[in-house]
């Protein structure tokens, strides 16, 4: 029960509590020094986390020979590194593939996980807790154990070297998201559903038009978590894709690193371009869904699947 209330609190806007109340205080040299040290530490870590990004963007705009030079602002700014990488590789096609896979993966897993989670939260059925225990247990299974048979299954279906295996397993819900969404459905008052039943709504209708709209925030958490998971994944594309035209961006970037005339020749400026292109969409999505991202992590205690 504690998790439910925490989940609700986390997703209620305007509850940002300030950790330390600000008080007017006399100037105390000792306190001033600890504060100065503290601010220095804060700035140090912030630079540590952000600077590599800025450096990567800078490197992507430098002439090849000057990638490691000390200047942060390239002179001249070499915009055509970007067009060069698109000419030398299939960046365009990879971007399209990544967008398709990511969107399908996130949409399907959100809908099906919400369906399953609702059943665990609403219905009272025999062995419910045992069945839910199986959901939790299956979360612990390392992907490495099922990786090889999963490849053989998709291979038998004839779908290796297509984009399908990268997202289609998401049609069957995901334990982690079932767990997360169940917490939110449990927080909804039962009377709401009883009222809908009296009005003659079917269970499916109740789920779709009563439960889902009320858990919009949680659904967005799942959606953005899966966007991130699908966009950044290297393993599945590595296992299932052979045709370079079908690569997703992460696998494409890996192939650029392995390409003897780009990575092999240590064209770091082009590798930096690849790194920027793969990363920037994630940062954009993060800023759009920032609240959901951070509060989802705080609520579930996890950074994704």
């Amino acid at each position: 029960m504690a998790t439910e209330t925490r989940a609700e609190r986390a997703l209620t806007p305007g509850l940002e509590r300030t950790a330390t109340a600000t008080r007017r205080e006399r100037f105390e040299p000792r306190k001033f020094l600890t504060n100065a040290g503290f601010i220095a530490l804060l700035i140090f870590f912030t630079v540590l986390f952000i600077y590599p990004f800025i450096w990567l963007v800078s490197a992507s705009l430098k002439p090849g020979a000057e990638v490691f030079s000390r200047e942060l602002i390239p002179d001249p700014i070499q915009w055509n590194n970007y067009s060069r990488l698109f000419e030398l590789s299939k960046m365009g096609a990879w971007t399209v593939n990544s967008v398709i896979v990511t969107f399908l993966a996130a949409t399907t897993v959100t809908i099906t996980s919400a369906l399953v989670a609702f059943a665990f939260a609403y219905f009272r059925f025999p062995y419910r807790n045992v069945v839910f225990g199986i959901v939790l247990a299956s979360m612990m299974l390392p992907g490495a154990v099922t990786m090889i048979p999963n490849f053989l299954i998709w291979n038998a279906l004839g779908w290796v070297n297509t984009l399908t295996p990268l997202w289609a397993a998401n049609l069957f819900a995901s334990p982690f998201y079932i767990f997360l969404l169940r917490q939110f459905f449990l927080g909804l008052p039962r009377e709401l559903f009883d009222a809908a039943r009296v009005d003659g709504a079917s269970y499916l209708r109740m789920w779709w038009s009563v439960a889902l709209p009320l858990t919009r925030a949680a659904l967005i958490v799942v959606f953005v978590f899966e966007l991130k998971a699908a966009w950044t994944d290297l393993v599945k594309p590595l296992i299932f894709l052979r045709d370079i035209n079908l690569f997703t961006l992460p696998l494409g970037l890996k192939s650029i690193i392995d390409n003897p005339s780009i990575g092999g020749e240590r064209h770091f400026e082009l590798l930096a371009v690849g790194g920027v292109i793969v990363t920037v969409p994630m940062i954009l999505i993060f800023f759009l869904g920032q609240r959901y991202f951070l509060e989802g992590i705080a609520t579930t205690g996890s950074t994704g699947r």
Binding site: L234, F268, G275
Partner: peptide, 28 residues
């Protein structure tokens, strides 16, 4: 306060970098 939001975002940014991009970045 609100500054915590800014620094929180800053600390979290590396987490958004896809593993392949992290690998590429650290090759450099």
């Amino acid at each position: 306060g609100w500054t915590a939001g800014f620094f929180r975002t800053a600390f979290y940014l590396p987490n958004l970098t896809p593993a392949v991009a992290v690998g590429t970045l650290f090759l450099m």
